[in-house]
Amino acid sequence: MGSRKTRVLIAKPGLDGHDRGAKVVARGLRDAGMEVIYTGLRQTPEEIVRAAMQEDVDMIGLSILSGAHMSVCKKILEMMDQHQFHVPIFVGGIIPTDDGQQLMKMGIAAVFGPGTPISDIVGKVEEIVGQRVSE
């Protein structure tokens, strides 16, 4: 009642069907008191950005295990420019270190590899969203 809730969209772009990681993260954020909108498998960049817009989320989490992270993230960032809608994005999955750094340079807020404790992800999301809200 009357209080602000952190809202996060968890999406799986691309064609791989392994959504366990996305589900574990969604559940972890839920248990940290956030509202998590889970949109499921095989989402296009356009669908993800539109869903994030309509849901007015504070952050988007992408789970990518297909190796397509560079092109997918680039498309999503372009789509955000096109819609003039910008929220921070974090990416989880099999992301080589070099690519991770590249993604951060492109404007991705955080990259999490396999084995990252949920508490780290929750902490990072809270930190990034907290900064945005106070701005």
Partner: peptide, 18 residues
């Protein structure tokens, strides 16, 4: 308990996303 929620209704409405 936590006030958190998993909102999963959208997943059934994918064809209207765009």
């Amino acid at each position: 308990f936590t006030g958190g929620a998993l909102l999963g209704d959208r997943i059934r409405m994918k064809r209207h996303f765009s």
